[in-house]
């Protein structure tokens, strides 16, 4: 190879590889939406439950099957007390819409805003657990000392894998802040 050809060739290799580096950096960021899609498909981390609330077609109710749904809630970094629904677990038929009510109490005088983040386990049930209405869709505001009923309506998809007998719906309530993406 002559000196000039070599230089050209080196530049070409460098160019391609640099492009690749930039691409991989972008790929790192692309992993974020990819991960969401992946979670939606697999139900990883109970994430998909938050995405499938738009259930257009009404589901047929499968009376022959009963699924236990459990409720729990955690509060983190916000002066609230949040009570789980009266019944810790509920037996529902797949396809049947059910509403349960959480209750939030503000423990301070000032106004506070919270955002609930849901999580569903087991992972394989997550994508079949649909919330049609949920206090977690929007931020919740409580004036000082206020108590508020927070309903959630959900349907268990009849396509839920047969081996799943119990589903746990958990909320973690965080202080809402302005740059919060709607995590419904």
């Amino acid at each position: 190879m002559t000196e000039r050809n070599l230089r050209k060739s080196n530049r070409r290799v460098t160019g391609w590889l640099s492009l690749w580096v930039v691409g991989m950096f972008g790929f790192g960021y692309a992993l974020v939406p990819l991960y969401s899609v992946f979670c939606e498909i697999t139900g990883l981390n109970g994430k998909s439950a938050t995405l499938s609330e738009v259930s257009a077609a009404p589901l047929t109710i499968d009376k022959s099957r009963t699924v236990t749904v459990e409720f729990t809630v955690n509060v983190s970094g916000i002066p609230w007390r949040v009570d789980r629904p009266e019944t810790v677990r509920l037996n529902v038929h797949p396809g049947e819409a059910t509403t349960v009510i959480y209750e939030a109490h503000s423990l301070v005088d000032a106004m506070t805003a919270g955002q609930a983040v849901p999580s569903v386990t087991p992972a394989k049930a997550a994508r079949h657990f649909r919330k049609t209405e949920c206090f977690c869709f929007t931020r919740q505001e409580l004036v000082g000392g206020e108590s508020k009923l927070m309903p959630v309506t959900f349907v268990v998809d009849p396509k839920l894998p047969a081996e799943v007998k119990t589903i746990t719906l958990s909320y973690e309530v965080y202080p809402a802040n302005e740059n919060l993406t709607n995590s419904s």
């Binding site: 991989m24 950096f25 790929f27 790192g28 960021y29 973690e172 740059n179 993406t181």
Partner: peptide, 25 residues
Amino acid sequence: PVLAGAVTMLLTDRHFGTAFFSAAG
């Protein structure tokens, strides 16, 4: 570059209000 991306996200989570890795956000 993927690591660079990950730590950059960490940096913006820490200081610029993104919520790549924060469940609260």
